[in-house]
Lab assay of single mutants.
Amino acid sequence: LLPSFEIGAWTEDDVYCWVQQLVRKGDSSAEMSVYASLFKENNITGKRLLLLEEEDLKDMGIVSKGHIIHFKSAIEKLTHDYIN
């Protein structure tokens, strides 16, 4: 489970856990499981996660359009939940 809904306070480890949970919950393929490490390697914290754009995801090595859409949708939901 994630430490809190205060996404802005999430550490790199918290984001890593979130990506792992996202991959487990989704209908995503096994190749998506490597993405948790990509987020950690790129020092993505909660604040940075909320700022990620499609180009950032591509720069991190996420090239599948479907996977990018999956992440963007999940990040938008997080942003919405965080604001409300």
Rank of each mutant, 00 (worst) to 15 (best):
Pro3Phe: 11
Lys65Phe: 03
Ala74Leu: 06
His70Tyr: 15
Cys17Phe: 07
Glu76Gly: 06
Leu2Glu: 12
Thr79Ala: 13
Gly66Ser: 14
Ser33Arg: 07
Thr45Val: 06
Glu31Val: 07
Ala74Val: 04
His67Ser: 07
Arg48Ala: 07
Asp13Leu: 03
Lys65Cys: 05
Leu49Ala: 01
Lys25Tyr: 09
Met32Pro: 01
Asp81Asn: 10
Val63Asn: 12
His80Ile: 09
Lys77Ile: 09
Ile7Asn: 02
Trp10Lys: 00
Asn43Tyr: 07
Ser37Thr: 10
Glu53Lys: 09
Glu41Asp: 08
Ile83Asp: 14
Val63Tyr: 08
Ser73Gln: 15
Tyr35Gly: 01
Phe5Ile: 13
His67Trp: 10
Asp59Cys: 08
Asn84Gly: 12
Tyr35Asn: 04
Ile83Ala: 15
Glu76Pro: 00
Leu38Gly: 00
Ser29Trp: 12
Lys72Ser: 05
Ser4Asn: 14
Ala74His: 09
Phe5Lys: 15
Ser37Leu: 04
Lys25Val: 08
Gln21Met: 05
Thr45Lys: 06
Trp10Thr: 02
Ser33Pro: 02
Ala74Thr: 03
Phe39Ser: 01
Trp10Phe: 04
Ser28Trp: 13
Ala74Lys: 02
Lys40Tyr: 01
Arg24Met: 09
Glu6Thr: 07
Glu55Met: 06
Lys72Phe: 06
Glu31Tyr: 04
Ala30His: 09
Lys77Gln: 07
Val15Cys: 00
Glu6Arg: 03
Arg24Val: 13
His70Thr: 15
Trp18Lys: 00
Trp18Ile: 00
Thr11Arg: 00
Tyr82Glu: 09
Ile7Trp: 04
Asp13His: 08
Tyr16Met: 10
Ala9Tyr: 10
Leu2Pro: 09
Lys77Cys: 06
Ser64Asp: 15
Val23Glu: 13
Ser4Gln: 11
Ile44Lys: 00
Asp27Tyr: 10
His70Asp: 09
Tyr82Val: 10
Leu38Asn: 13
Met32His: 05
Ser64Lys: 13
Asp13Glu: 12
Ala9Ser: 14
Trp10Asp: 02
Ile75Gln: 05
Ser37Trp: 01
Ile68Ala: 09
Ala36Phe: 03
Glu6Tyr: 01
Leu49Met: 06
Asp14Ile: 03
Lys65Pro: 14
Phe71Pro: 00
Leu50Ser: 12
Ile7Cys: 03
Tyr82Ala: 12
Tyr35Asp: 03
